[in-house]
Amino acid sequence: MRLQGKVGIVTGSASGIGRGIALAMAKEGANIAIVDVNEEKGKETFAELNQYTEGLLVIKDISIKENVDEIVTEVVKKFGKLDILVNNAHVSRQDLFVETTLEHFDLSFGTGFYPTFHFMKASYPELKESRGKVINFASGAGIDGQVTQTSYAAAKEAIRGISRVAANEWGPDGINVNVIAPIALTPGVEQWRQSSQDLYDAMINKIPHRRLGDPEQDIGRTAVFLASNDSDYITGQTIMVDGGTIKLR
């Protein structure tokens, strides 16, 4: 129970990686606010999470800044504090570089980068009080420059940039800011595998562990570590949870 008594927000947690993180943290004793736009999936995850701890389900569009402020206020009102912020939600489109438009960037930055920035600002007073932890999300798409990922890669690298700045500025306040760059078997990836088995197999063969990560056991457990006191002396880092695919230097 490494997170006993902690309170956290996990965006995009109705399914996929966010769900895995929310459940992993709940099983370690944290009270978690599930934040998503998918009410049906959100209710399913909320019911499962409540088997382990007390949760809060918030169905709101985080691309709207005012909603972000309201979410933080709602969480603090219910639980009295905020210890953990996980910025996981992100939506983007894949297209070749020359076919990428400003609308692609608006979508990727509007659902990923700007909500991350707004949640960090809105949460800062509470995180300073609790000497809390911020966990943001990047991707090998940005680090390695994956094809067709122009807008997504740009937003993810921008998130890494502000995470390093916040780690430096907020370190004296006792706030840790780190980034996870995962590869995981999410429902979306599973759908892609069914339609593109050859491409999927090629991707798996590039992973030293020859498998995709599990959203809860691999990505979620890493998030638990970064949210716990065990990571108190780690900040400003990008943690590759990708089976060894990319080795940062």
Score class of each variant (00 low, 15 high):
Trp192Thr: 03
Thr186Tyr: 04
Trp170Gly: 04
Trp192Tyr: 04
Val179Arg: 08
Asn176Lys: 00
Gly140Lys: 12
Ser151Met: 14
Gly132Asp: 06
Leu185Trp: 09
Tyr152Trp: 13
Val147Ser: 11
Asn176Val: 04
Leu127Phe: 03
Val165Asn: 05
Thr186Ile: 01
Lys121Arg: 11
Ile180Asn: 05
Gln194Asp: 09
Val147Tyr: 11
Asn176Asp: 03
Asp198Asn: 10
Arg164Gly: 06
Val134Met: 06
Lys121Tyr: 11
Lys128Thr: 14
Pro125Ser: 07
Trp192Phe: 04
Ala122Tyr: 04
Gly188Gln: 01
Gly161Glu: 10
Lys156Ser: 11
Ile143Met: 10
Thr148Cys: 15
Met120His: 08
His118Lys: 13
Trp192Val: 01
Leu127Ser: 11
Glu169Ile: 05
Arg131Gln: 12
Arg131Val: 10
Phe119Pro: 07
Ala138Asn: 09
Asp198Met: 10
Glu190Phe: 00
Val189Lys: 03
Gly188Met: 02
Gly145Ser: 07
His118Pro: 12
Ala184Arg: 10
Lys121Cys: 10
Asn168Tyr: 05
Arg164Tyr: 00
Ala181Lys: 09
Ser130Thr: 12
Leu185Met: 04
Met120Lys: 05
Asn168Glu: 14
Ala154Met: 12
Ala184Phe: 03
Asn168His: 10
Ala158Asp: 12
Asp173Pro: 02
Pro125Asn: 09
Asn136Ser: 04
Arg164Pro: 05
Lys128Ser: 11
Ile143Trp: 10
Leu185Arg: 07
Tyr124Lys: 10
Asp198His: 03
Ile180Gln: 01
Trp192Cys: 06
Thr116Asn: 00
Trp170Gln: 06
Ser195Glu: 00
Ala158Gln: 12
Pro187Ser: 03
Glu129Tyr: 11
Lys156Val: 13
Ala141Ser: 12
Met120Pro: 05
Tyr124Met: 08
Ala153Asn: 11
Trp192Gly: 02
Thr116Ala: 12
Gly188Arg: 07
Ile143Thr: 14
Ala184Thr: 04
Asp144Glu: 11
Tyr114Thr: 11
Ser139Tyr: 09
Asp144Pro: 14
Arg193Glu: 04
Val134Ser: 00
Val177Pro: 06
Gln191Trp: 02
